Amino acid sequence: MSDDLRLGLNLGYWQRHATDATDLVQAAERLGYDSVWTAEAYGSDVFTPLAWYGARTTRIKLGTSVAQISARSPVTTAMTAMTLDHLTGGRLLLGIGASGPQVVEGWYGRPFPYPLARTREYIDIMRKVWRREAPVTNDGPHYPLPYPGGTGLGKPLKLITHPLRPEIPVYLGAEGPKNVALAAELTDGWLPLFTIPQQIPALYGDSLAKASPGFDIAAMVLVMVTNDLREALDTVKLMLTLYIGGMGARSKNFHADIISRMGYAEAAEKIQHLYLTGKKDEAFKAIPDTLADDISLLGPPARIRERLRLWRDSPVTTLLAMGPHDEPALRTVRDLVLG
């Protein structure tokens, strides 16, 4: 439980049009937000906007939520993270994640199986790169170094540049219990996407057992301060329609799986079926208001302040607000969370 939630701003990834959120990021820094986070799917990448914002700020931490591991080799991500960490004075928080088979195999052209083993290997290689204790080698099956075969001329190498920090904080975007357990075992923090805060102990208590002191649970939460609760609920439901219905195959949709584990199995199955049969409006209507409300902070300030108690009484340590789009909204959220 924490009465001292840290507050971050999650910008997500660009939608149809490019978005420069410099003014919003600078306002968040002025208002005392601890961090700002970007994301990637199959549009804007996760690192370039952070470099842009990092050059225009001085204090706020810069997080990736998340860098997809199939998009880059582990040494490429390690080099990019080291470079950005140097240029921003040690402000990077490196969130990574496995994504799903549709994106991994359909967009990146990489195999999806064994995501846990691949993630473990990936993290190990990145930390070898940053520590510079020896030329980097890896005997694992997913990212062997040097590459077996080929010309036979590959040799182990050591990072030329000395990192500003040899232990850049690593976070893991995870939804399944085994993946959350991996986050607790190996990383500095967990980035849950959809969370009912009071359910975390029951759903993930065993998974979090190996977490070290200071382990950061940085939950992404849509925050909408408004007197129109109906409109706010519908905004969340619109997002859930896509994630439950269309962000994954019928046989493997991690977002639908987590909604099922949170007690909405029948609804998740119905929503996915309607969406995949082209009935998107009906899928939207099938999302329970209680689900949209449970994972979000919506409504007038007094209602949000009351519902924040659920987050303060949970294991969540950082609230990553999604939704504030101007300085007044940022200030209101800041006052509610940190005031």
Rank of each mutant, 00 (worst) to 15 (best):
S207Q: 00
R110L: 12
D234R: 15
E133F: 00
G246A: 11
A134S: 12
V236Q: 13
M220G: 00
A211Y: 11
V236S: 08
P197T: 03
E175H: 10
Y143G: 08
P144W: 11
I196R: 10
R132L: 09
H162A: 14
L186I: 01
I200L: 14
N138Y: 15
L164V: 06
K128V: 10
D234I: 02
E167T: 14
Y122G: 09
L233S: 09
R110F: 03
R118G: 03
I244P: 04
G245P: 06
P141L: 12
V225R: 00
V236D: 05
L229E: 15
P156N: 10
N227E: 14
L172Q: 02
F215C: 04
G109T: 11
L186T: 01
G246M: 12
R120M: 00
R120Q: 11
A134W: 02
V223T: 13
L164Q: 12
I217W: 05
L193C: 11
L208W: 03
R165C: 07
G149T: 12
A134H: 13
L145H: 11
G152W: 12
L157V: 15
T119K: 01
T161A: 13
T137I: 15
L229M: 08
V170R: 00
L186S: 01
P135C: 06
H162C: 03
G245I: 10
M224D: 14
I125F: 02
G189V: 06
V221M: 04
P213R: 11
P113I: 02
I125W: 07
L238T: 15
T137D: 05
L208C: 02
G214S: 04
K155V: 14
E175L: 15
L153M: 06
V136W: 07
I125E: 12
P146C: 13
L203K: 00
M220F: 10
K155C: 02
R118D: 06
L208H: 04
G176E: 12
Y143W: 15
K237P: 03
I125Y: 08
N179G: 10
I244F: 01
T119I: 10
V225W: 02
Q199E: 11
R127C: 06
P115S: 00
P115C: 00
P213L: 13
P201L: 03
I196T: 12
T161P: 02
L164W: 09
P146A: 13
A174I: 04
K158V: 14
K237N: 07
P146D: 13
Y171M: 08
L153Y: 13
F112L: 09
E231H: 10
R131G: 11
D124K: 11
L240E: 07
Y243F: 15
T241W: 02
K155T: 15
L233I: 15
Q199D: 14
G245D: 13
G173H: 02
A218Q: 08
M239I: 12
R132E: 11
